[in-house]
Design a protein around this nucleic acid. Structure first.
Lengths: 192, 192
DNA sequence: TAAAAATAGCGTCAAATGTCCGCATTTTAC
DNA sequence: GTAAAATGCGGACATTTGACGCTATTTTTA
């Protein structure tokens, strides 16, 4: 499990062997089965999660029980609820596994320590935050301005790998349209 | 114009007088007339903007010319395109003034220098980024799950001050609904 | 101050979307 | 291996939303 993380760090962060060892020394390996929860609404988020293998989903529910997918996190991505993690406040989100997965976990305290010790990690974290900010803006713009079909095409084009691995009703949930609408779009595209 | 900024800094950042002077020494004061642009699509964003007085709008257009409001920035808020500013890439956004406004400008270079010199400013910037990230998530969730009326109510409740100062068609644009839909919602609410 | 532009409401019609239902197939779990 | 659950399609119908055109009022600008 650790091998994937080492490859990721070496490719993207170019840390020294010592720094890598330091990161791993405070990481917890964990295997998550499909459908298992890593974070639940109301709970304080305890970890920063790196996905070595598998696929996680972050979602939120409404009072009526409907689920709305905020994010999919496949291997070599991260997941957490930064708001809950940073402020130690109850989370609004759920994180669960869509596939049996292997993840690494860091507590906030340990990760803060790592950032303080390893400037390159701190810099990389900031870069990831800014990428997330941009992705968020792009998604908002898309939600404001695009048709359901445009959003669907955009999703398939941007995340072909993820798309192939998740049920359509979750794609619909991520896009903010009903499964019915998604079905119609796909049906119409087939006929072309 | 500088008085508003000083008050803001003292309330939120508690900088020393020297640090405040340093910030002001590299800031440029500027008056922006209503409808004037501070950033245009295709241009590289040059500044971080603090609004002392007035109201700015950040928006993006589609090929068909439609405008979609990403953000309103009233006094004591900030505006910029961080993606363009940080990477020195052409921006996708426009920033213009909805009211005659007074702003302070910093170049990326100067602001980076300030962050390096003033740890409290660096920390505050990071805090603002994380707040923005959360606001973005909240808006995405709202776009995915809320009805037009719920989004409208949420906006009025969250930003009563801004709401009273902008035309309805811009509220509609911010919410991602047509002006017609917004009219209908308001009409229905009046009848209750 | 007068002309022009912006703002916002309304009616009508058409298109898009959602809900509810059942059904068939595939996948999962015990 | 079998029962149960998940997945996804499709029909019928109602609702929501948008597009277009028109108008009245307010605001801006010259």
């Amino acid at each position: 499990m650790v091998a994937e993380f080492e490859r990721y760090i070496k490719e993207n962060l170019k840390l020294s062997g010592g720094d890598l060892k330091l990161m791993l020394s405070v990481a917890v390996e964990r295997i998550v089965r499909r459908k298992q929860l890593l974070l639940e609404e109301g709970e304080v988020c305890r970890h920063k999660i790196f996905i070595c293998k598998g696929l996680l989903r972050t979602y939120r529910t409404r009072e009526d029980g409907s689920e709305h997918v905020m994010m999919f996190s496949p291997e070599t991505w991260w997941a957490t609820d930064p708001e809950s993690l940073n402020n130690q406040t109850p989370s609004l989100y759920y994180i669960d596994a869509l596939e049996d997965s292997e993840v690494l976990l860091w507590t906030k305290k340990d990760f803060d320590m790592l950032c303080a010790q390893i400037p390159a990690l701190k810099a990389y974290s900031e870069k990831l935050i800014s990428i997330n900010l941009n992705l968020g803006r792009q998604r908002i713009f898309s939600a404001l301005s695009a048709t359901a079909e445009e959003k669907y095409d955009e999703f398939v084009a941007s995340y072909p790998n993820i798309f192939a691995r998740i049920p359509l009703h979750m794609v619909a949930s991520y896009l903010g349209v009903s499964l019915k609408t998604l079905s119609r779009i796909r049906q119409a595209q087939l006929k072309r």
